[in-house]
Each structure stands twice: as structure tokens, then as C-alpha cells.
């Protein structure tokens, strides 16, 4: 019996590959799901926040638009001199550790603290400067939205007299329902646990 199950498990990816080759949609990795937009949110989903965000292309959306895929979320600001470039490198490392199917579905989302200077154009310049591909979403919001998100994530931040922000370096992993499943604090640490959290089955 055990052998049979093992054999089936080993076969499963092959079967799925055959399926996709024959034109059927590729199987969704276990981290991910197609969720109807009107399906009720879980009580722990941060997508209960109905704040409005603007991306670097000027498109407006709610965080709930990310529903259905795992999200690697961090807060930053584009004028950051030290920590944020390092944070971006950490996120690159994290992404590189993901299984390919998960990597294709996962969204990396950077949300700015800087409600004044981080306009869509400034975020666009940051994207170019850091060579970020379409897997990265850069968002800006108004003060209330930024504050609420920081409060929910437990991110501390404070703007100093020069306009720079002191802030927690915190990477948050959300599952496809927008629930916090892992948080990684600090820079340049071992992020393998965070990478495993991204690939976790949804339930």
C-alpha cells in the first residue's frame, strides 16, 4: 500500500506535466489557489484593510487584489541609504530559494513609508535603479493606510528631522488568504525559513 502511494506521489508531477502539455491549465502549487473575489475573508486576513494603494504605474488597487497567491511583503522608502538596498538583496535571495512553481506565483510587495516623496514616479525610478522585474509590486499610500498596515504587521517606524525613516527591517510572508504565516526580522540573516513559509500549503 505504502509503495503504491509513493508511486502515485512520484507520478503526480509527471501527470500534471502531461496535463499542461496537453493544453490544460498548469496545476496550482499548494501555496496558491484561485479564490473568488467575493469569497468571505478569513478573520486573520490583512486583506480586511480596505485602504487604497497606488503602484509605480499609477494603478490604484486594494491589497486584496493579491489574494490567491503568497506574498512576500516589506515596508521601505526609496530614499533609504543603507537598509533598503540590503533588504532588496535579501528579498532576491529569498525568491531564489523558492521552488519554481511557487516563485512564479509569489508576489514581492514593497510598501513605502514615505507618503510625500514616494510618488509613483519615484517608485518607478526605484524599480529601474534596483532592476526589479514584474514579480515586484511597489506601492504607496496615504498616511492612514501606511500607519494601519505598519500596525498590523508590527512594523515600527519614525521619521526623523531630515525626512529619513528609522524603521523595523521586517519581511512578512502572507499566505494566499492574506494571513501572516511568518515574519523575518533583521537584515542579511538566514531566510530559508521565510522561503519555506512562502511555499506552505494554504491550509
Amino acid at each position: 500500500m505504502k509503495l503504491l502511494v509513493t508511486a502515485l506521489l512520484l507520478l503526480a508531477p509527471l501527470l500534471r506535466a502531461a496535463e499542461s502539455a496537453s493544453g490544460a491549465p498548469p496545476a496550482m502549487p499548494p501555496c496558491c489557489a484561485v479564490i473568488a473575489p467575493d469569497a468571505p475573508l478569513s478573520g486573520r486576513s490583512i486583506y480586511q484593510l480596505d485602504s487604497i494603494w497606488t503602484n509605480d504605474a499609477g494603478r490604484v488597487s486594494r491589497l486584496a487584489a493579491l489574494r490567491g497567491r503568497p506574498v512576500i511583503l516589506a515596508m521601505f522608502f526609496s530614499h533609504c541609504e543603507y537598509a533598503c538596498p540590503v533588504l532588496v538583496q535579501d528579498l532576491h535571495r529569498l525568491r531564489a530559494q523558492l521552488p519554481e512553481a511557487v516563485r512564479e506565483r509569489a508576489a514581492i510587495v514593497l510598501v513605502s513609508f514615505d507618503t510625500v516623496r514616494d510618488t509613483p514616479a519615484a517608485l518607478r525610478a526605484f524599480r529601474e535603479r534596483m532592476s526589479l522585474d514584474a514579480g515586484w509590486t511597489l506601492l504607496r499610500g496615504e498616511t492612514d493606510a501606511v500607519e494601519d498596515l505598519a500596525m498590523l504587521l508590527g512594523v515600527k517606524f519614525k521619521q526623523d528631522a531630515r525626512g529619513q525613516f528609522a524603521h523595523s527591517n521586517l519581511i512578512t510572508i502572507l499566505n494566499a488568504e492574506g494571513e501572516i504565516v511568518h515574519q523575518h526580522a533583521g537584515l542579511q540573516g538566514d531566510i530559508s525559513e521565510a522561503a519555506r513559509a512562502v511555499a506552505l500549503p494554504l491550509h
Binding site: 537598509a83 505598519a150 500596525m151 508590527g154 512594523v155 515600527k156 517606524f157 519614525k158 528609522a166 524603521h167 523595523s168 527591517n169 521586517l170 526580522a185 533583521g186 537584515l187 540573516g189
Partner: peptide, 12 residues
């Protein structure tokens, strides 16, 4: 949540 005291890092 501005009571950070050490400045930069929550990990610190």
C-alpha cells in the same frame, strides 16, 4: 509604535 529606542532594527 515609534518607541523603537535603538533606531534601525527590530532585530537588534
Amino acid at each position: 509604535n515609534t518607541a523603537m529606542v535603538t533606531g534601525e532594527s527590530r532585530g537588534d
